[in-house]
Amino acid sequence: MTGVYKYINYYYFMQLMEKEVPTFAGLYWADDRIDQVIYLKEKMPEYHYIIAMGSSILGYMAEGFEAYSMTAMSLYPQLVKEFYDYMTQYKIKEAYAVREKLYKTIYALFGKEKYMDYIYTMKMEMDKLYPFKMGPVRKPITSNYFY
């Protein structure tokens, strides 16, 4: 949320991590720039790449990324698993239909709760679905240090 990612050369970053951090295992990618992470995966295939962009997950999985994490997994795991299973079976039309259902469900949630902050809305929904409380949303980082 800080916008720092716009200024990072990820290939250089991963090369530095490789040199400096012996336990470095991969990257958690939360960005819609599919081309950049494809480049990284081609240059450094020995690492793990976890994708965290639900809006682009169809494209990422079509490019061969299988590990992903998205907020909706906590709320609607059955739909996410169904989507994943279709994609790994190369059933794109079925996966697309499930993805559309998932996003219609998410959009309906936002419309019902009338909040545009997805973290707040999802925490409220999780409080309804599960027996434990998620706790309050933390305040966002507002520093302009990196700009």
Rank of each mutant, 00 (worst) to 15 (best):
M124C: 11
M116L: 13
Y86G: 00
Y115G: 03
Y96K: 14
K114H: 13
E66F: 01
Y120H: 12
M87C: 02
Y115A: 06
L109A: 07
K101H: 06
Q78S: 14
K114T: 07
M70K: 07
M116F: 12
K101W: 01
G64E: 04
M70R: 07
T71W: 06
L109I: 10
E125I: 06
L102V: 03
T105H: 13
K101L: 09
S74N: 15
I106L: 08
M116A: 12
K112S: 12
F83G: 04
Y118T: 11
K81N: 11
Y68M: 06
Y120C: 01
D85P: 01
T121Q: 09
Y120L: 14
K112I: 08
Y84T: 15
K104A: 11
M70W: 08
I119V: 15
A108R: 15
A67Q: 09
E66G: 02
A72E: 10
M73C: 11
T88V: 14
G111N: 15
Y120D: 07
V80E: 01
E113A: 07
K123S: 02
T105P: 10
E100L: 09
G111K: 14
D85E: 14
T88Q: 13
I119K: 09
Y76G: 00
R99A: 05
D85Y: 10
E125A: 15
K114W: 05
Y96V: 09
P77M: 05
Y86P: 00
E113I: 10
K93Y: 09
M70L: 14
A72K: 04
T88C: 05
P77A: 06
F83C: 03
Y118F: 13
Y90I: 01
Q89M: 10
G64V: 05
T88E: 06
Q78P: 00
K123T: 03
P77Y: 06
K123V: 03
Q78N: 12
G111Q: 13
Y107K: 13
K104I: 01
E100W: 01
E113S: 05
A62R: 10
K112R: 15
K101P: 00
I106C: 00
Y90R: 10
G64P: 02
V80M: 03
T121G: 12
P77K: 04
V80C: 14
L79A: 02
G111I: 04
P77H: 05
A72G: 03
I119T: 12
K91C: 08
